[in-house]
Simulated scan of single mutants.
Amino acid sequence: MSRKPIIIDTDPGIDDAVALAIALFNEELDVRLITTVNGNVGLEKVTYNTLRLLKFFDKQIPVAKGASTPLIKDPVDASNVHGETGMDGYDFEEPDESLLLDEHAVNAMHKEIMNSQEKITLVPIGPLTNIAVLFKLYPEVKENIAEIVLMGGSTGRGNVTVMAEFNIYADPEAAKIVFSSGLPIVMAGLDVGQKALVYPEDSEELKDMNDTGNMIYHLFKKYRGGSFNKGLKMYDSCAVAYLLKPNLFETVDTYVDIELNAEFTKGATIVDLKGYLKQQNNAKVCIDIDADEFKKWFMENIKKCK
Rank of each mutant, 00 (worst) to 15 (best):
S2D: 14
K4T: 13
I8N: 02
D9G: 07
D9N: 13
T10N: 14
D11E: 06
D16F: 12
D16A: 15
L20Q: 12
L20D: 09
L20K: 10
I22V: 15
A23E: 07
L24Q: 10
F25A: 12
V31Y: 09
V31D: 08
T35I: 04
T36M: 01
V41K: 06
L43M: 08
E44I: 09
T47G: 08
Y48M: 13
N49C: 00
L51C: 00
L51Y: 02
L54R: 00
K55N: 05
P62C: 03
P62Q: 08
A67R: 14
T69H: 12
I72V: 14
K73N: 14
D77F: 04
S79Y: 10
V81S: 08
D91V: 12
E94W: 08
P95Y: 00
D96S: 09
S98M: 09
L101K: 14
H104R: 07
A105Y: 06
V106F: 14
A108M: 11
E112W: 11
N115W: 11
N115P: 06
S116N: 15
K119V: 03
I120C: 05
P124C: 06
I125M: 04
L137E: 15
L137Y: 09
V141G: 03
E143S: 14
I145W: 01
I145A: 02
L150R: 02
L150E: 11
T155K: 06
A174Q: 05
A175N: 13
I177C: 08
I177W: 05
V178R: 12
F179I: 04
S181G: 10
L183E: 02
L183S: 09
V186D: 07
V186S: 04
M187K: 15
M187G: 12
A188Q: 05
D191R: 09
V192Y: 09
V192R: 04
K195T: 01
E204V: 03
K207F: 10
N214L: 13
M215K: 14
M215H: 13
K222R: 15
K222H: 15
G225L: 03
N229E: 13
K233G: 04
M234L: 13
Y235I: 08
L244I: 10
L244F: 08
L244D: 11
K245D: 11
D253Y: 05
Y255R: 05
I258S: 02
E259I: 12
A262H: 15
A262M: 04
E263I: 13
F264V: 13
D272P: 00
G275S: 01
Y276T: 10
N281F: 03
K284I: 01
V285Y: 01
I287R: 03
D288T: 02
A291I: 00
A291H: 13
K303N: 11
K304H: 12
C305R: 04
